[in-house]
């Protein structure tokens, strides 16, 4: 296997910078981009839903309820504090609609680190 590495920048169809991958000389460029996507390095691509544990524990699907009523299962206090709850923040995997809803995705709340670009990118 070749040890020669290259940086590969990628843009989307609107010419917005999406990110970079590390490609190897004997490796298809698409394969290195697939790996970069696996590591969350590509942005501005059509976003996939932030799906994690689907059971209220991991905090990936944190969101704000803009309109509507819902009932809730337990959800991790690490990611939805009491203050968050009063503001209408929830984990989408742990609520059930009781009316039409309008929701907005929110960054995952990351504790004990300055910033986590991967987690904030949703």
């Amino acid at each position: 296997m070749s040890e020669q590495r290259f940086n590969i920048d990628v843009e989307n169809i609107n010419a917005e910078f999406c990110g970079s991958s590390t490609g190897y000389a004997d490796e298809r460029v698409l394969v290195s981009l697939e790996r970069a996507q696996g590591f969350g390095k590509l942005k501005n691509l059509p976003k996939r839903l932030p799906v994690g544990c689907r059971r209220g524990g991991c905090g990936i699907c944190r969101a704000r309820i803009l309109e509507g009523n819902y009932k809730r299962d337990p959800m991790s206090r690490e990611y939805v504090t009491l203050e968050d709850e009063k503001e209408g923040l929830v984990l989408l995997c742990a609520i059930y609609p009781l009316s039409d809803l309008k929701v907005r995705l929110e960054p995952k709340c990351v504790k004990n680190v300055e910033a986590n670009s991967q987690s904030l990118e949703i």
Binding site: E34, R35, G38, F39, G40, R48, V51, G52, C53, G57, C58, I60, S76, Q118, S119
Partner: peptide, 12 residues
């Protein structure tokens, strides 16, 4: 042959 999105980001 590739990571899924959850492997590096979904933890409790």
């Amino acid at each position: 042959r590739q990571l899924n999105e959850a492997f590096l980001s979904v933890v409790t």
